[in-house]
Design a protein around this nucleic acid. Structure first.
Lengths: 227, 227
DNA sequence: CGATTGCCGACTGTCGACAGTTTTTTGAAG
DNA sequence: CTTCAAAAAACTGTCGACAGTCGGCAATCG
């Protein structure tokens, strides 16, 4: 109801307020409407969103489990502020997950998976040519989600999704450091080629390079701007 | 830091009901006081624990994020029931994380880490000789937590801790399938030897064997008893 | 003038209650 | 005896309210 503020998804009326509040908070945090380290007042959020504090609290706990918020007892919830070390750890874990996934995927590279990944790279290239930085990131992540999905371990995908929430914390930083569209394209084509070759070594090399580039971009960006 | 020091919090009594309820529920689920798939009534839990429903709900959401409960809208919370496929995925992810960790650890194997791991293996052997199956599992997991900790990526450790919650879901199953104390001892000594050798290949081989054994035990156990 | 202590406002943690929905029970018809 | 429907019970989602606690500010003391 009162959630129409910045939500383009307001068309799909979700039934439970908790998810609605969680979505709103997630978007607001990603769009830097709440700055890292900022405190979120339950009462103020309740007033602004026109709901009671119970759904706000439960949504905040959900976001805490996703690493977007941190709670201090008797103090409330704060927007998580990632430092350079933590962000580096996130990329290291991402490398860990995707290395494993691409190996598993190479073992069972079905035509269906091949088709889906090729199509997603096309979508990604299209997005990379446009101006919407957020969409580019999302299509990029979606490609990797598909890789993990077709790797055949849903628990692995869940772990990756948890990571992406933290990546989105500094999405503005990522969109700022513009990667050239052709770079993005070739970088993903390399992954497809490695998968087509069926060589585990080639796959590992490709994913190491791919994630290494992304990490350098973001970690360097964090080192420059904010601690 | 919080890895070894559980003492400083002992002075401060836990005051918030949410964590208390969460701990109670976790223990109750692990000890099979609530069976897998069973529905948890908020009102009944509130009455039993002498608290209102708000802390119960928030604790349940916490356990949901840990994979111990699943929620169905307008239906309530249910104890998570892991099937054989999901459990296999959990062990596959565990292999993924520990492979990565032991490689990182081999690169930076400090005397401090060596000392801590050796000591923990001693503690584990002592526990393995005793009759407390739960303690044996916990000391075993603690050894692996130490490995991940000294690997130098706290986010990796967090991902592992999330997994262990799911492992504890079938802890009674694990304790039932008795592993011989000497098997446990040698299995962990192999890991220490591989780390001492400094060879990445030896480390990978050791961790693959180690987790493979554990997975065979548990997955086979699940395949036999309940789907 | 600086440090300390007590007070005030705001906020979190928790509670009981109400409304809508799901599940169970009940009762009648076939 | 079975089947189906309607009422009843129980439960979840949500709300407003109260109490204890924390941070900030001012007054007091050294």
């Amino acid at each position: 109801m009162a959630l129409l503020t910045s939500a383009p998804k307001a068309f799909i009326q979700q039934q439970n307020l908790v998810d609605q509040v969680a979505d709103y908070l997630t978007q607001a945090i990603i769009q830097q409407q709440f700055l890292p380290g900022e405190r979120l007042s339950e009462v103020q959020l309740s007033r602004d969103l026109g709901v009671s504090r119970a759904p706000v609290r439960e949504a905040a706990r959900l976001l805490e489990s996703r690493g977007l918020l941190v709670s201090k007892p008797r103090r409330g919830f704060f927007v998580r502020a990632l430092n350079a070390v933590e962000l580096d750890d996130v990329f290291d874990l991402r490398l860990c997950l995707e290395r494993h996934a691409i190996q598993r995927l190479a073992e069972r590279y079905t035509p269906e998976a091949q088709r889906a990944l090729n199509q997603q790279v096309e979508v990604l290239c299209e997005a990379a040519a446009g101006n919407d930085g957020t969409r580019r990131i999302e299509e990029d992540l979606q490609f990797h989600r598909l890789m993990l999905h077709y790797a055949g371990n849903e628990r692995l995908l869940l772990a990756f999704d948890n990571l992406t929430h933290e990546l989105r914390l500094c999405i503005t930083l990522i969109t700022k450091t513009h990667e050239a569209p052709e770079t993005i394209a070739t970088s993903h084509f390399q992954l497809l080629e490695a998968l087509n070759s069926g060589s585990p070594e080639a796959c590992r090399e490709a994913i190491d390079y791919h994630i290494g580039v992304a990490r350098d971009f973001v970690v360097k960006g964090v080192g420059e701007t904010g601690e």
